[in-house]
Amino acid sequence: MKHCLIVDDSRVVRTVAGRIIQDLSFTVSEAAHGAEALELCRKDMPDAILLDWNMPVMNGLDFLRALRREDNGKDPVVVFCTNENDSEHISEAIRAGANEYIMKPFDAEIVESKFSEVGLV
């Protein structure tokens, strides 16, 4: 079973996204900010990461840049999931190494479609 790490400072979003992603046959773990996510990745690199942008301690973009510098840090498929929905933010995320981008609000169909685009389902 594939493993997805959900990184979002909102517990509600983590719970909702977690249920959707579990239904796609993933095991799910959670982190509330980028620094916590980086710690978890160093212990157990996930197959996929659903990543919010604006979070305390370390934001999503800084986390992604740090992740891609880690050993095996290029392996996880990273899907941003954020309220930052303008073209500039999307371009910046792709340049930093994001594989897909979900604009909030989202539903199960969008998550499945985006995961499908990057070969996760």
Binding site: I90, M103, S113
Partner: peptide, 15 residues
């Protein structure tokens, strides 16, 4: 709309 462009389109195709 927001939901239409996120179903079936990769972010690269959208951009």
């Amino acid at each position: 709309g927001h939901f239409d462009v996120q179903k079936g389109l990769s972010i690269h195709r959208l951009m």
